[in-house]
Design a binder for these strands. Structure first.
Length: 511
RNA sequence: GGUCCGUUCGUCUAGGGGUUAGGACGCAUCCCUUUCACGGAUGAAACACGGGUUCGAUUCCCGUACGGACUACCA
């Protein structure tokens, strides 16, 4: 039996968690659950300049919202803590030193100005890729070019330095990606990446290898943007002597813009008017608010289902999956290779499916919440009746109220087009007759009863009901379309109907 | 520019040497119906291009084109 599967989601707390990040987290979660493994969350906050307060909570809340909370995290530590890289700072130097000792890394003292000068020089010399590598490092200020005693002196004097990996000049690095198969790259296209920064923090490259190793990570599932640096990571595992336990890699296809091409970005959300972040986020610096799926009315189960299908499919024709069903069906082999354009229509469709699946009782709660905001009180019984007839046409819970206001408020005006087309003497006659019947009727009438009464009113006047039905709807709701009218009658009740008929008869001008 | 990755209906995708190239969203038409919606039915709609390999290629190989990612003391 192989060892326990352990995967991690490792976001940077630099702002709102992008939807692509949420998907990465989801796939990690699904993979872990599928294999009875553990899903951990590690905060990659080695860049202290980019730290944004609140971002960590945002990540936590986002994952909680869709029900994929990590088994181990900063707020639920397991045996491999701490789970924030900033708190693991003392750990990394040991491994950098190990690399230094083995000759796989070296000290570099170049200032950012010197680095910039080097790049400009190379660019001017038309070097195809100006980088710090096996060629250029011979002309820079580092422990490979400087005399040993000078290196020692610089280090002892407290001069800032970084530690760089020494990439071999000629070596083929290969890795077997679970999504893409064998990927090969020549070491001469890699550069001597910084491993330890001058502030004593590791860079992502060192930290992720050390932490994944220490945390027993078996599979690294991350975005495709990491693929180019994966060979470096493979090299690092090798140099650290961890080749045997190196995790497997799976690089996920990117989420693309809905129009044209390119990576999905915040701009697209603004441009198209739909969210690309799970929850609302207020930038603490600019105060700018970006919309979240949750606040826009997406149900977590719909969002989850939608997200799961962005780059993965079960191989059969099912579309609707609960989290548990996703776990059951998930496999990395079924993740696609190509980038995925973001289609908000599909997300809406998922939302409609899940919305309709909810009980009237639950839906009534959404309605009641909206009603409370407007200081309107209706009985739970009535709220449930309203949502029962409204839910077939709602995309978001807020539509229940937005589209169903006539259930509470009588119309003040009437749709001109419908008036022009349907409002005529027959309609007035039937409505008047219907009102008379209502006046004489019992207090409580069912939809069936209303239908019968209205039918009689029309028949007695010698008018076909179908001819005036829409005019009746107009009189009662103000518009020409909506749910079953008799159901509406039942919800409104006899007295309210009489009032509305009176108002309509007095206020609608014949077309 | 360089390195790497990718390319089936508008979109998400299934498939994979011989298929009427399947499904879903969206779109259109029809049915249901008191309207709209739901639901049902039907339809339009795709293998980027060029060479190979092969009896046969959308499928395998190589190019080309196009797209993307990466190319920081950011992750």
């Amino acid at each position: 039996m192989s060892k326990e599967v352990r995967v991690r989601f490792a976001p940077s707390p630099t702002g709102a968690l992008h939807i692509g990040g949420v998907r990465t987290a989801l796939y990690n979660y699904l993979f872990a659950r599928k294999h009875q493994g553990k899903f951990l969350l590690r905060i990659e906050d080695t860049d202290q300049n980019r730290f944004i307060p609140g971002a960590e909570d945002y990540i936590r809340n986002s994952l909680d919202w869709i029900g994929i909370s990590p088994d181990e995290s900063p707020w639920k530590p397991g045996d491999c803590g701490p789970y924030r890289q900033s708190e693991r700072k003392p750990l990394y130097m040991e491994y950098a030193q190990n690399l230094l000792d083995k000759g796989h890394a070296y000290y570099a003292f170049d200032t950012s100005e010197e680095l910039e000068a080097m790049r400009q020089r190379l660019t001017a010399a038309r070097v195809v890729s100006p980088q710090y590598n096996s060629i250029t490092r011979t002309q820079m200020k580092n422990s490979l070019t400087l005399p040993a005693d000078e290196v020692k002196a610089r280090l002892e004097s407290g001069e800032p330095y970084v530690i760089r990996v020494k990439i071999p000049r000629k070596e083929e690095v290969r890795l077997n990606d679970m999504v893409r198969g064998w990927v090969m790259v020549h070491s001469n296209s890699l550069d001597d990446k910084v491993l330890m920064k001058s502030d004593g923090m590791p860079t992502y490259h060192l930290a992720n290898i050390v932490d994944d190793h220490l945390m027993g990570i078996t599979h690294v599932i991350r975005g495709e943007e990491w693929l180019p640096s994966a060979p470096l990571h493979v090299l690092l595992y090798k140099y650290l002597g961890w080749e045997e336990s190196m995790p497997e890699f799976a690089h996920l296809p990117l989420l693309l813009k809905p129009d044209g091409n390119g990576k999905l970005s915040k701009r697209d959300a603004e441009k198209h008017g739909f969210p690309i972040f799970p929850l609302d986020w207020t930038d603490p610096n600019s105060g700018e608010l970006v919309d979240g799926f949750r606040e826009a009315g997406y149900l977590p189960e719909a969002f989850l289902n939608f997200l799961a299908f962005l780059g993965w499919n079960p191989g059969d024709q099912r579309e609707l999956f609960t989290l548990d069903e996703l776990v059951e069906a998930f496999s990395i082999e079924r993740i696609g290779k190509s980038g995925t354009k973001f289609d908000i229509n599909k997300a809406k469709w998922y939302n409609e499916q899940y919305l309709r699946d909810k009980s009237d009782e639950v839906l009534a709660e959404y309605l009641q919440a909206d009603l409370r905001k407007e200081n309107i009180t209706v009985s739970q019984e009535k709220a449930e009746k309203i949502v029962a007839v409204m839910k077939e046409r709602a995309t978001f819970p807020s539509d229940l109220w937005k589209e169903g206001k006539f259930m509470v408020f009588p119309p003040k005006s009437f749709d001109d087009q419908v008036v022009a087309k349907r409002w005529n003497q027959d309609a007035i006659t039937v409505l008047a007759a219907f009102k008379e019947k209502l006046l004489a009727a019992e207090a409580s009438i069912t939809a069936e009863g209303f239908k019968e009464m209205l039918g009689h009113a029309a028949a007695e006047a010698g008018i076909k009901l179908g001819k005036v039905m829409q005019a009746v709807r107009l009189a009662i709701t103000g518009v020409g379309a909506g749910p079953d009218l008799m159901q509406i009658f039942e919800i409104l009740g006899k007295d309210e109907l009489i009032k509305r008929i009176d108002f309509a008869l007095e206020n609608i001008k014949a077309g």
